[in-house]
């Protein structure tokens, strides 16, 4: 067994992929949210931000490619873990109960993950891989969020993201071996706070844009 397989093929190795890519997504989400808050400043500011991004050219392509690659790794590994974990208990319990360890986030990771993937594809089709025309991306967004259905959908999706991140964030640190008596409580709480801020921040935008429109 080559040491690479013996490292990254193990339970911990696979989780390493999950945690590193997951943390990158967290970072991405922070950036994305920061950018998107420009929606609050109106069409011009947001369109200018979009144009600026586009002007990065190759750099943007590389970042996009990176994100896609990370997504493939994160989703692929996640599904494989999910499959393996199902295999690890072929006969299920008749009664399932929790001793209090699991949280909404940890109990639903694979499911929230798949929902997020579906949402992501939808989101990309809706706003990214689409002809933005002359009106600019703000108009596209405003048009979408004028419809309560999309607002509702995005709020729901952000709730799911929040649930996923509430576990994923601290869990990534745990997987990397970062667990310390002094900071562990803070990290676990911080993880929930981070998830709520992210989800609420993202969810607020469609509401705001829809309301303005």
């Amino acid at each position: 067994m080559s040491w690479l397989v013996g490292t990254f093929g193990t339970a911990i190795g696979k989780k390493l992929f999950m945690s590193v890519t997951g943390l990158c997504f967290c970072l991405f989400l922070v950036g994305h949210l920061a950018g998107n808050t420009l929606l609050l400043s109106g069409a011009d500011a947001f369109n200018a931000y979009a144009a600026k991004l586009q002007s990065l050219g190759a750099l943007l392509r590389i970042m996009e490619a990176g994100l896609i690659f990370f997504a493939v790794v994160h989703v692929g590994t996640g599904l494989y873990l999910f499959y393996q974990n199902l295999q690890a208990r072929p006969v299920r319990y008749r009664v399932n109960a929790s001793g209090g360890g699991q949280t909404l986030g940890s109990a639903t990771m694979p499911y929230t993950g798949v929902l997020i993937l579906a949402f992501l594809l939808f989101h990309l089709v809706q706003f990214t891989f689409v002809d933005k025309g002359d009106a600019g991306v703000y108009a596209l967004v405003a048009a979408a969020f004028a419809q309560p259905f999309y607002v509702g959908l995005y709020i729901l999706a952000m709730a799911v993201v929040g649930v996923h991140v509430s576990h994923g964030f601290w869990s990534a640190f745990q997987t990397l071996g970062m667990n310390h008596d002094k900071y562990f409580g803070l990290l676990r709480m911080g993880s929930v706070v981070f998830a709520v801020v992210l989800a609420a921040g993202f969810a607020f935008l469609p509401v705001f844009v829809g309301w303005v429109a």
Partner: peptide
């Protein structure tokens, strides 16, 4: 199976062994 940090183990362990040990193992492993 693979650990996904659900922490049910820690609360059900009759000797109340902490998941800090899992993190320590992860660290050692890396």
């Amino acid at each position: 199976g693979n650990c996904t940090n659900v922490t049910e183990c820690e609360v059900e362990c009759p000797k109340e062994i902490s998941i800090a040990n899992i993190a320590r193992m992860n660290r050692e492993f890396l």
